[in-house]
Computed example of a mutant assay.
Amino acid sequence: MTVVTTTLQMLAPPRTAPRPFPEDVRLDRAARVSPEYARFLYGLVGGPWHWTDRLGWSRQQWVDELATAATEFWVLYGDGNPLGYVHLQPQPTDRGTAVEIRYFGLAETAIGRGLGGPLLEHGVRAAWTLPERTGIPAVSRVWVHTCSLDGPAALANYRARGLVATGSEETDEDVPDRPIGAWVATGGPAG
């Protein structure tokens, strides 16, 4: 299957504040996430969209990924359950800090509830304010990759929040005909 990956970036913080969430939804910052929970969130959000490249990772690979200084997760909850998340990972550059929105998305149960835009707005704001919480150098760029294997609203949502496409790349990937789903992606048996 041909997969199109688009890189988007933002070079200045947004001028408007993020929209609030409904009263029954909260967003929690997690500066230290266990490898188990990070993998669970990845599978919960990505299972319906062909996110499979990290499902085979060892626990040590997850530990190494999460060991990047100032990495943050912002987890959206409703009724005590995770509804989505934003994974932010800073990278030092010669112009300050570039913060990658490493992963972002909603669980299937949260799609269609108007939460994706506000969650991304809060995630973008958190990326720009990461130095205030962690002491890293000032942020000069917030960026993300999205691809045609992500949810159908992903690219439009990034653009609507002010991220601008800087390039795209096509690759041929061996992808299953259908996503494996959140159940299997979070460790449940197939079938």
Rank of each mutant, 00 (worst) to 15 (best):
R32E: 15
S34A: 11
P152C: 13
L41T: 07
V33P: 04
Q61N: 13
R54L: 09
A127V: 03
R159H: 07
G123D: 08
E121R: 04
G112P: 01
E108H: 11
D28C: 14
W128T: 02
A70N: 01
G46Q: 03
S140L: 09
E108R: 09
A30E: 15
P90R: 00
L76M: 08
D150T: 05
L149H: 06
R133V: 13
Q89T: 08
E36R: 13
R59H: 09
T97Y: 02
Y37L: 14
T97N: 04
Y103H: 12
E72G: 02
Q91I: 01
Q91L: 09
F73S: 05
W51K: 00
Q60G: 02
V86G: 03
A138I: 02
L163M: 15
G56D: 11
P131H: 09
L55V: 05
T97P: 01
R26E: 15
A38K: 01
D64K: 04
P82T: 03
T68W: 01
E100P: 00
V75R: 01
D28I: 12
R54S: 10
L44C: 12
R54C: 05
E72V: 00
L163V: 09
W57L: 13
Q91W: 04
G43R: 01
A98C: 09
V164C: 04
S58A: 09
L55C: 09
D64C: 05
L44H: 04
R39T: 03
F40C: 11
R54M: 09
A160S: 14
V33Y: 05
A30M: 15
E36F: 11
V33C: 14
G167N: 07
G47L: 03
Y103Q: 12
C147W: 11
R161F: 06
Y158R: 03
L130K: 01
P131A: 12
L149P: 05
S148A: 13
A165T: 05
R125D: 11
A154N: 10
P92M: 05
A31E: 14
G105R: 00
Y37A: 12
Y77Q: 02
L155R: 06
Y42E: 07
A38E: 04
E65I: 00
A160P: 00
H50G: 04
Y37G: 05
G117W: 02
T129Q: 12
A107K: 01
L88K: 00
V45E: 06
G105T: 01
A69W: 03
V99G: 01
R102N: 13
R59L: 13
A160E: 06
R159L: 12
L149W: 10
L155N: 03
P137Y: 10
R32S: 15
L120Y: 08
V86P: 00
W62S: 10
A160F: 00
R159Y: 06
A38Q: 02
A31W: 06
L106H: 01
Y77N: 02
A70P: 00
S168F: 06
H145G: 09
A110V: 04
E36H: 11
R32A: 15
A30Q: 15
G117K: 09
Y37E: 14
R29P: 07
A127K: 00
L120Q: 08
G135T: 06
E169N: 04
V75F: 07
